[in-house]
Every structure is written in structure tokens, then in C-alpha cells.
Design a protein around this nucleic acid. Structure first.
Length: 367
DNA sequence: AAGACGTGGAA
DNA sequence: TTTCCAAGTCT
């Protein structure tokens, strides 16, 4: 055994495992809009840092399947970081609608504008330079540095944590085990092709070493994997139990003027759905204040229920035809400019409930 | 430093 | 149906 083998000896040295992983990646890498094709790769062409950055931000806590279309749409609308930096906030938020975690979109714009204003429109090529930018944390900085700039950074995301916890059969629960798992991932990070290695571990975690029912039989690391040897792969990684999420209630008001315009509200930058367009409403709590945004004969259209990460929400949806009022909250969006696609998922549900009502639907039909 | 912060797909 | 969770960051 070489000097690189730590106390956790699983029968293969680090370099051998890395080689297995890279070989597997060369055969099975998935095609992604932000990855270079085989021909470019063979020619040594690096992926566009802008596209890599955009993909990494979109992929934070989000599945590849969901991100693909958004990435294609964003790069079509804004091909360079300068194009994105020059975009209107509302346009970017509308395009992000449905993807969730909207602070990412706000930071995306801040980051693009910082790259243009402070870095001449060129992304920093170091971990330190990248992590200083809005919305780029330890994971994303390492990922961009490795993938776009070929830097030997240790990239640790949920996939890497899972793969390491199984490969070395770590019993320490997450998140306490994070430093230990990071150290193990660092051991396996090669000087050559660090970007491919990072993507190889993540692809492995996403397609083979999955959270449930991992496909150990076809895993390139099935031999050295300690969890598989011990039969504990289904119990790795160990996680500290999460608290049950509470239930909150609220009211949402869907009002339309006789000309078809919708009463909408741009939500505050901080807090839930920050910066997104939505229907005005109450606070979300156990005892929400039902004060209406404008005087009208509001009637209950139904309920919309939505699950968030840390609570579930049921909104009572009220609808009304609005006269020539000056609303206390919100502003009118012309019928032609209104698009449910620009709304976060919760507000789309509210829209769907409201649209079953005549005073809302009728205005639609009158357009 | 623990909690806030979305969504839709899989089991 | 319900639960879990996916390439994390910010405060």
C-alpha cells in the first residue's frame, strides 16, 4: 500500500479508485447543455465558465431534469454574462419562475453585474475569487474552478457526501460528518482532470450510488466500497432526523379590473418568494390577517395548498371584479402582459383556483 | 449555528 | 398518499 492510504484501507489505493472513476466517466458521462461534446473535449476545449456557473447555481438543491430547460432558455436569451448583467430584473425573475429558491435568481443578477463591473466581464479563475461573488459558496466556487478552469479543487456536494460515506462506510451522521467526508473526497481528488473527476463522482451519485436502492452491481467502485462489503449501503449516509414541518394558513386575493387587468404584487426582496410576482394577500401564520388589498365584494373561490421546505401552506383564495379603485397594496398588470408562467408555483395554484370563477374567467374571455 | 429558503419527481 | 429529497447559500 502506498503512503496515500489512510487508516481506512479498503483494498485499493486512492489513485486506483480515481482511475476507475475517470474510466467509468469516460464511458458513461451524461450529456448536458453546459458540458462540452466529445469532439471539443478531445480537442482540449474547456467549457464556457458562464455556462458552468449558470448550471451550478441552477443545480443547487435542484434536479438535472428540472434545470436542463431553464439553462437552455437562459443561455438563448442571454448568451453571455454581459447580456445577463444588462437584463431587467423582472425579466430574469420571470424566467426563473418555477425553479424555486428565488434568492438564487436575485444573486445570479448581482453576480453577473459584479463580474461585469469588477472583473471586466470575465469570471475569476480561482476559488478565492469565485467565492467572493454573490450566490457562490464553497461548493459552487470549487465546482467552477475545477470544471471550467481545471483547478484541483475538492468539490463536495450531496452526491460526494453520499459516495464517500458509503465508500468508507462512515457512521457519523450528517451534517457533523461533513469535514470527515470532505477530507476523504480531497484524498481522491487528482491533479489531472479534477473537473472530470468532480463530475464523475457527482454523476455516480446521481445515477448509481443513489440515495435509495443504489445499483451496487454495476458500480465501478463496488470492489473497494466498504459499505457494500459490510452490507450497510442502504444506511449510508446517516442523517440526523429532521423536525416535522408546521402548517400555516393565509389569504390570497385575485382581483381583475373590467379591462381585464390583474391586481398583482411584487413581493419584498427578503422572505418567501422574494422578488417574485404574486397575488396580494395576508401573512402566512396560524392566525393570518384577512385584510383585503382593495375594497370589493370578495368571495371565496376555494383553497390552494402548497408544500414548502419548512412548512405547508393552505391559502384561501378570494376573487372579485374590481371597479376603478386605487388598491392599498399591489399594482395592476395589463391582461396582455400577464402570464401565469412568470409566477412561482404557489401563485400558479392560486391562479388556477381563481380561474374557475366567473368574474375572473369572464374577464379572460372578454380579452 | 441552526433555520430560512421552492419545487416536482420518485418510491 | 405521504415522505423524501436534488450539483447549497445566506444570515
Amino acid at each position: 500500500m502506498g503512503a496515500g492510504c489512510g487508516q481506512r484501507d479498503n483494498g485499493l489505493n486512492d489513485a486506483q479508485m480515481t482511475a476507475e472513476l475517470l474510466g467509468w466517466y469516460d464511458r458513461h458521462a451524461r450529456t448536458m447543455p453546459w458540458r462540452t461534446g466529445p469532439a471539443e473535449k478531445a480537442a482540449g476545449v474547456r467549457p464556457d465558465p458562464y455556462r458552468v456557473w449558470l448550471s451550478e447555481v441552477m443545480l443547487q438543491q435542484t434536479t438535472v431534469a428540472a434545470v436542463r430547460r431553464y439553462h437552455e432558455r437562459f443561455t438563448a436569451l442571454w448568451p453571455t454574462v454581459a447580456d445577463l448583467a444588462a437584463a431587467e430584473d423582472a425579466d430574469v425573475m420571470a424566467e426563473w419562475a418555477g425553479l424555486g429558491y428565488y434568492a438564487r435568481a436575485r444573486n445570479l443578477l448581482k453576480c453577473a453585474r459584479a463580474v461585469v463591473a469588477d472583473h471586466g466581464g470575465v469570471f475569476p479563475d480561482t476559488h478565492a475569487g469565485l467565492i467572493a461573488l454573490p450566490g457562490i459558496g464553497p461548493y459552487t466556487a470549487a465546482a467552477i474552478a475545477a470544471i471550467a478552469f481545471d483547478r484541483p479543487e475538492t468539490v463536495v456536494d450531496g452526491n460526494v457526501e453520499r459516495v464517500m460515506s458509503r465508500l468508507f462506510d462512515i457512521e457519523t451522521p450528517l451534517p457533523a460528518a461533513k469535514p470527515e467526508l470532505t477530507a476523504l473526497a480531497a484524498r481522491l481528488t487528482p491533479e489531472a482532470r479534477p473537473g472530470d473527476h468532480a463530475q464523475a463522482v457527482m454523476d455516480l451519485g446521481a445515477t448509481i450510488c443513489t440515495p435509495k436502492s443504489p445499483a451496487c452491481g454495476i458500480c465501478p467502485l463496488r470492489e473497494p466500497c466498504l459499505a457494500r462489503q459490510n452490507g450497510t449501503q442502504a444506511q449510508r449516509p446517516v442523517k440526523t432526523p429532521k423536525k416535522p414541518r408546521p402548517h400555516r394558513r393565509g389569504y390570497a386575493y385575485v382581483g381583475r379590473r373590467t379591462d381585464g387587468a390583474w391586481l398583482m404584487e411584487t413581493r419584498p426582496e427578503s422572505g418567501m418568494l422574494g422578488g417574485m410576482l404574486g397575488f396580494p394577500g395576508s401573512d402566512w401564520s396560524e392566525t393570518p390577517d384577512p385584510a383585503a388589498p382593495a375594497p370589493a365584494e370578495w368571495r371565496i373561490a376555494g383553497e390552494a395548498t402548497h408544500g414548502f421546505t419548512h412548512f405547508t401552506l393552505t391559502l384561501t383564495v378570494l376573487t372579485a371584479r374590481l371597479g376603478p379603485v386605487n388598491p392599498e397594496r399591489g399594482h395592476f398588470v395589463a391582461a396582455e402582459a400577464f402570464s401565469p408562467g412568470a409566477l412561482p408555483a404557489l401563485m400558479r395554484k392560486v391562479h388556477d383556483v381563481a380561474s374557475a370563477q366567473p368574474e375572473i374567467e369572464r374577464a379572460t374571455a372578454a380579452e
